[in-house]
Simulated scan of single mutants.
Amino acid sequence: MPNGDNWQGDVLRDLRAPTPDPTQAQALDQAQAAAAQAFAQSLTAPADGAGQAHGQVPPQAAGQPADHGPPPPAVAPRSPDARPTVDRNLAALARKPRSGEPFATRAVRAVWKNVSKSAAREVAEATRTAEILQQPVTTGRQIAVTSIRGGAGKSTVAALLGTTYAHYRKDPVLFVEADPALGSLPVKLGAETVRWTTSDVADIVKPQMSLLDVTGYLVQLRNNSWLLPGSQGQIGAMLDARGYQRVMVALRRYFGITVVDCQTLPAEVARVALSASQARVLTTPATLDGVASTHEVLQWMRGLPPHVIAGTVVVLTEQTPHPGLDLDAAVRTLRSTGTPVHVLPYDRHLAAGGAIRTDLLTRATRTTATRLAADVFQLSQKRH
């Protein structure tokens, strides 16, 4: 197996040259697709294993001959028109972005940092975290972010995670929006327009393409990162599990880290994304019902193959300055399932919505996002 540095160098060279061996790449992608599909079926198959998921039978098993006819001629896809992520008339309603914490708080912290003896410890911890985030990978890591219900902050967490990886790493980072129903990830990432969507690219990307070919269908962001939107903002946009599998298998080999903003559970695409990823992030609001629902899901996950819950991290998102919940007790309860838990503190900048500017985030938000990214990355490295 090639080492991480060689893999990253090969990927970056793809920006200038085509992929050298399409036959091997296609065989690898087909094997990855088969493994992901088999595990996804295990999440929904009956406990006794009888029959296949959803009662489907392969045509060969039913006595139907396989079709070995010539493939249809390739047809160049029609390029869709670019659409703004937010209507320009509505965008004018937004106020100027403000810092996540008041000026007085920032001033006090600046003075404290200059006189505190713990400043050196903070620098040392930040250095250790950066070293973790910069570790090489031998194959692309896929990290799925989901939740039990809407409004749990999963798109915000996905944006923070991917932005952190793009800041610390040199290999390409991809954001995939697998939540096409009016998802907010493009807005949070500051994308002004979107064109190609996940469903579109599923039928376009081929193993013989170079990274330069692939990124032509993506939205380029900052710091060597790209976005694949789930829709162009249409109500009722759909993404099926098979299309999601095709696009993820095809894109995995081009990007060191892929962060997937999934549908909420128990949607089919979300289950497939969780099964195929190397690490999972489950977001929940810091409320009593949010913690209770998440605790039930974690108990259910303990009945799945051990690596599923072993590669899962929970993020409690504070959406008000003073949540009516004992956070320490909530964290202890969720950690009793054997799952790491992070608390994303309330941040005025995040609460306002719109594009996330890292320079306006509170220090606590940036610290939490970096520690979370490091923990999730380490978990993704444990599953090969």
Rank of each mutant, 00 (worst) to 15 (best):
A124F: 13
V308R: 05
Q135I: 07
G230H: 05
G151I: 11
R335E: 13
T333R: 15
V194T: 01
P80Y: 00
Q208M: 06
S147C: 10
P18G: 05
A92I: 12
Q64W: 09
L43M: 11
W7M: 11
M248E: 03
L90H: 12
P80Q: 00
L298H: 06
A279H: 14
F39D: 04
Q60F: 13
S199E: 12
V341I: 12
E177K: 13
Q142R: 12
N6Q: 06
A181M: 10
K154P: 11
P305K: 11
T365L: 02
H54Y: 12
D179Q: 13
P65N: 05
N224C: 10
R128V: 15
D213P: 02
R271F: 06
T197G: 04
K96Q: 10
D328W: 05
P77I: 07
I204V: 09
A273E: 05
K117N: 14
S42E: 08
A178M: 01
A17E: 06
G153P: 00
A94Q: 13
A35D: 06
P18E: 06
V123I: 03
V187T: 07
A270V: 04
H307Y: 13
R332T: 15
A40V: 00
A27N: 07
V75L: 07
A47M: 09
V173T: 07
E101L: 10
T138M: 01
H307S: 10
P58W: 08
H54A: 12
V115Q: 04
V176K: 00
F103T: 11
A45Q: 04
R98M: 10
V269N: 03
A45K: 03
H54K: 09
Q8D: 02
A152D: 12
Q245Y: 09
A126H: 14
R95A: 14
A62S: 13
A36W: 01
Q263G: 10
G63M: 15
T317N: 14
